[in-house]
Design a protein around this nucleic acid. Structure first.
Lengths: 341, 341
DNA sequence: TAATTTCTGAGGTTCGTACCTCAAATTCCT
DNA sequence: AGGAATTTGAGGTACGAACCTCAGAAATTA
């Protein structure tokens, strides 16, 4: 029942400890015959490296970074807080985490920063940056230099080849659609959709998922064209008012962006939030308060703490040349009402 | 930046390594003056045991048990599956997990089994057993014998003093109430509530939470008295039919138990599931299929994989004399629609 | 066959902590 | 002050894997 060691492995394989070591650590000068012999023995006795021993010998903490946006509102604060919590929890775990803030508006700045990172600086990085070709290339090169990368919450397209932590935004939008549809009931009317910007992949995917459900399941409802606030209150109010002037029958509002405050505070000027169905994304002090006061009807959220830990587990696994546990690492689309906060 | 070792600690405290060892491992024959000196040094330099070294030296896997019910349906299968998955994931982690099945109907059998466990047998156990005084006592004594215990999903009352993994059932019931209320809309009518048994604390708490929300927020709806199936199909059908005969205006059904199949299949005989609002607990193949076919409108779930990992992390932390990370270990009340499965 | 290259084995050291023994120093008690 | 009890120090071993060196065996080439 006791775990086999390299010594047992050597014995079973009929080779010396030195050879076992050469095979396990991919050192040169091993005949392919010997190599297979050892590998067969590994299978046979179910040998697994003793991580404690490896880490002890390593005697250097794993160093990971989180690259977060420079600008944001409450959801960004939540993320930063989640990273800080992880820092404390990982003190015992030979892991050092630091947060880097980047202006995400210019992909070249991001790509440039990534281009300067060497494997000797950090073991891995979790990147929350909008999709863009320069960033994508920088990530690929970064990985080639031996730095492990996790796409964090906001991903590059086609992330099969990268590790990704975050929700399926299409499904998140669809979930929002389901809730809006069911909560509104049978009354025909329109739905306002507000985003920070529709440039980002996240917003686009959420919008697609939302429309798909509304159109297929709740055809008495009509989603209006997306409004983009660009983080500007005046603009937000103007375009909202404009859309309302042309659509008197708005029954629901779906706020697509992760930061809901600006949008919600803007529509509040023109609509009675208690009379319409309002679905937003992400749990923040603002959205929670609005949910409790029943102005917001549901929050679609991805748990930042979970996401951060998940990213760290993946980076850790990659650094130790293990496969991440995929079952554990998928971030759930949470639906929050005021009862299950 | 490099982590301080016991050697550094000894130096700062102005004592020998042997004394540091005596303090760290609570050995006798240390003057209180010396003890405080060392403890102050620990604070000062922020010393933390190097877990890798401890585990290496320990050279024995942590052994944990999950005590699950003997009888159950699909949710039990999910739990067992989750434990099995954890087994594989933890091979690398010096952790051995085994599953024990117990007939949960007789508390004395459970208490008796727990009474035979010694700290030399296992390091910790996650117990999923209904509330009862003999079990409660057995757990207390088990802990006194040095075996770490986690209440798993189903807890003894007043679990402040015990570690508990699972959702707040009052809140889970309230969430179900919220969904039922919002999905039904304004039509007045009654709600059928079906449980396996109302003997268990879980069911009672869920029912309370459910009633609280329905009565306070959706007063046009009237929850009917709980029906108890006792896991018997014939009985279920009989009592359901009986209640329907006296209440023609059933608009919704809330299935309280973790195993929804029996109840849902029974009401299906008498009601068109697509016409009523149906909320059930726990994600199982059955409930997922029913959700997809839109017979079930929402699933309130606690993720078994998450719960299992959480229980194991707590047991591990306790075994290593660490504080569990409470933020991470709370199990969320998940709300599942067919879009966010 | 001899010279050369490639492979394998034996043995040592290191990481940080736990646990051990034994001697020496300090305190306590009469 | 003397003896006993308590407290402290010095030093060792062990855990499992990574990495090192060096000698010698085996295979390959000339």
């Amino acid at each position: 029942m006791i775990a086999p060691t390299t010594k047992d492995l050597a014995e079973v394989a009929g080779v010396s400890l030195a050879t076992v070591d050469r095979v396990l650590n991919n050192r040169p000068n091993v005949s392919s015959k010997t190599r297979t012999k050892v590998q067969k023995a590994i299978e046979e006795i179910g040998f697994v490296r003793n991580l404690a021993a490896v880490n002890l010998l390593r005697n250097r903490p794993y160093k990971f970074q989180f690259m977060l946006p420079q600008n944001g509102d409450q959801y960004l604060d939540e993320l930063i807080h989640a990273v800080d919590e992880a820092k404390n929890a990982l003190k015992i775990d030979m892991t050092v985490v630091e947060t880097i803030r980047q202006d995400m508006r210019d992909p070249h700045v991001i790509a440039n920063y990534l281009g300067l990172i060497e494997a000797s600086d950090i073991d891995g990085i979790a990147i929350m940056a909008p999709e863009s070709p320069p960033v994508r290339d920088a990530i690929v090169r970064l990985q080639e230099r031996g730095v492990h990368v996790v796409q964090f919450l906001s991903g590059q397209e086609n992330f099969e080849e990268f590790d990704f932590v975050g929700v399926n935004n299409y499904a998140a939008g669809a979930t929002a659609g389901r809730i809006v549809g069911r909560f509104v009931g049978d009354t025909p009317g329109t739905i306002m959709v507000i985003a920070d910007t529709m440039q980002s992949l996240d917003s686009i995917e959420r919008r697609h998922g939302f429309d798909e459900i509304i159109n297929s399941k709740f055809s008495s409802l009509k989603p209006l064209p997306s409004l983009e606030t660009y983080g500007n209150t005046e603009r937000a109010q103007k375009i909202i008012k404009n859309q309302l002037d042309h659509n008197a029958d708005v029954l629901a509002v779906y706020v697509i962006s992760s930061e809901a405050r600006l949008a919600v505070e803007s529509i509040q000027q023109y609509l009675d939030l208690k009379k319409i169905v309002l679905v937003v994304h992400e749990r923040t002090p603002f959205s929670v308060a609005a949910l409790k006061s029943e102005e917001v009807d549901a929050i679609i959220a991805q748990n930042p703490g979970h996401a951060v830990r998940s990213a760290l587990r993946i980076l850790r696994a990659r650094s130790e040349e293990r496969k991440p546990n995929t079952a554990q690492e998928s971030v759930r689309i949470e639906v929050l009402f005021c009862e299950n906060l």
